[in-house]
Write a protein that binds this DNA or RNA. Structure first.
Lengths: 187, 187
DNA sequence: ACCTGAACACCGTTCAAGT
DNA sequence: ACCTGAACACCGTTCAAGT
C-alpha cells in the first residue's frame, strides 16, 4: 500500500520561511524544517532539490508577497498619495520580514539566482510614469526603489548610528525625491 | 624550542577576504583559508575565535578601506564635484568588491555585528553639510547614502532587468538628488 | 609558543529497505 | 508513491601531543 503524503512543498516553504525569519540563515537546518512539517529530513528531498533550492523557493514566496502588497497599496487615484502609500508598504513589509527581505538581495553562490526573486511592481511603474513622464519612468522608478531599498537595508543593518531621527530622515528623503519628479505635486 | 609563527592575523584576513570575494560565502572554508596561508585549519584558531569572527575581521577590513577611499575622493574644494567623486568612488569600490560589499549589509546571526562594520565618512558629512546646510546634514547624507547603496545593491544583485541604460539611471538619480540640496549648484 | 593529527559533533544528502 | 534509518562526506572546532 502506498504511503500517504505527509507534507507538501507549500508546507515546507512556509515552515522554512518562518524558521528563516525567526532564527536566521545560518541556523536554518533541514532537520528543523523537517521536524516543523512532521517528517524526517530525507523526506524533504522528495519536494525540494537541496537546501539552497529551498532558500530559492522561500525567497520567491517573499518576493511575490512583497509585489502583491505594493500593488495593493496603490489605487487612491492620486499618484503622489499612491507613491507614499507604496513606499510605506514597502518599508512595512521589510520591517515585518527583515531577514528574508535582506536575503533577497544577498550575494548567492549561483549568480543570478538572487535577481530572479526580485520582481517589479506594475503599479509602481504606472504611478511613476504619471509623476515622471514616460521618458523618465524607468530611471525615476529606479531612483525611488534604490533609495527606499537602500534606506531600509541600512536601517535594518543598524547602519544609522549617528543619532538623529530615522523617521524624519525617511520623510526627508521621500520629500526630496518627490520634489524633483517632473510632474510633481506636494502632498 | 618554540615553534616559529608561520602566519598572522593579517595574512589570514587577507587570504580569507580574497577567497570570500572569489568564491562566495558558502564556499569559504577554514581549510581553504589555512591552506592559503600555509598552515593547517586548527592553527587558525590561535588567531581568530571562529569562522564568523573571521568574517567580522574581513568585513571590518573592507569597511575601513571603503571609508578611506571615500575620504580620498574628496578634496577638490567644490562640494558638488566632491560629492560626485565620492559617489563614483563608492560605486567603484562596490563593483570591485561585490561579495564583501554586499555582505557588510547582510543579516547576521549576531544582531548588530553587521552594523559595526559600516563606518561613516567624515568627508562625506562635511561635503553634505556644505550642500544641505547644517540642519539637514544628517537626513541629507542618509538620503544620498541610501540611494547610492540601494542602487549599487540592486545593480549587483541583478535586479535591474527591465532593460534601459543603468549608467543613465545612475546619473539621473544623482542629478535628482543633487538638484534638491538646499545649497545646490549643477556641475 | 605555535603547530599538528586525531577526534568529535553537526549537518546536507543519498539510498536501500520498509509500508 | 512516499517515508525512514543508516550511512557517507564534509566541515567547524577542540585538544592532547609534538617541536
Amino acid at each position: 500500500m502506498p504511503a500517504h503524503a505527509q507534507t507538501s512543498t507549500a508546507a515546507i516553504v512556509a515552515a522554512g520561511r518562518h524558521l528563516l525569519e525567526e532564527r536566521g540563515a545560518d541556523a536554518l537546518t533541514m532537520q528543523d524544517v523537517a521536524e516543523a512539517v512532521g517528517v524526517r529530513a530525507p523526506s524533504l528531498y522528495k519536494r525540494v532539490r537541496s537546501r539552497s533550492d529551498l532558500f530559492r523557493l522561500i525567497l520567491e514566496d517573499v518576493a511575490d508577497e512583497l509585489t502583491a502588497s505594493l500593488d495593493a497599496a496603490a489605487g487612491s487615484g492620486d499618484p503622489v498619495a499612491d507613491l507614499r502609500a507604496m513606499t510605506a508598504a514597502y518599508r512595512g513589509f521589510a520591517h515585518s520580514n527583515p531577514v528574508t527581505y535582506t536575503l533577497m538581495f544577498a550575494p548567492d553562490s549561483v549568480p543570478g539566482a538572487t535577481a530572479r526573486s526580485v520582481r517589479s511592481s506594475a503599479a509602481l511603474l504606472r504611478v511613476v510614469a504619471e509623476l515622471a513622464g514616460p521618458q523618465h519612468t524607468l530611471p525615476a522608478a529606479r531612483t525611488i526603489v534604490a533609495w527606499a531599498h537602500g534606506f531600509i537595508t541600512m536601517e535594518l543593518a543598524g547602519a544609522f548610528r549617528l543619532g538623529g531621527d530615522v523617521e524624519q530622515a525617511w520623510d526627508f528623503g521621500l520629500d526630496q525625491i518627490l520634489a524633483v519628479m517632473p510632474g510633481r505635486s506636494r502632498a
